[in-house]
Amino acid sequence: MNRLIRLFAAGALALASTSVLAAADLQINTPAIQQIRQDLHNHFHDLREYLASGAVGLTWDGMLAVRDASLIPLDQRQAVSALVADDNQDRHALYREIARANGHPEWEQEVRDTFAQRWIERARPGWWYQKPNGAWVQK
């Protein structure tokens, strides 16, 4: 009986330590993730004026989209849409890498959902974001 109790105690301890592990910070400092963070920052430098004008908006699923191309001077349209595509590739990689760096590739969708919500939450006044039904709203 004593042994049984000890075994359960060990089990409970394992359970407790797992909970502690799950409550800790997520790993976001691998070289791959650092590189993506830097890239996203560099993109933002070029994209901020288009976010401010409403030409580019934040989608409901954690990406960027050209919302209204008519707000972009004709000779810049192609460059902006290439930049948005580039940025989205990095966003996709960011969500995947965070899930993977934390040992749970299957978390990718949840990581993306969390980011989607936070990007919109923290968007600056005047920027546009998309609702899950596809409608665009100005912050």
Partner: peptide, 26 residues
């Protein structure tokens, strides 16, 4: 324990905010 490892939503939000601050320089 293995099956029930849940997605750490609070930690993910914290990580997201940190990265967003950095990317957007808030």
């Amino acid at each position: 324990v293995t099956i029930n490892i849940y997605f750490p939503a609070a930690a993910a939000e914290k990580a997201a905010d940190k990265i967003i601050d950095e990317v957007w320089q808030l």
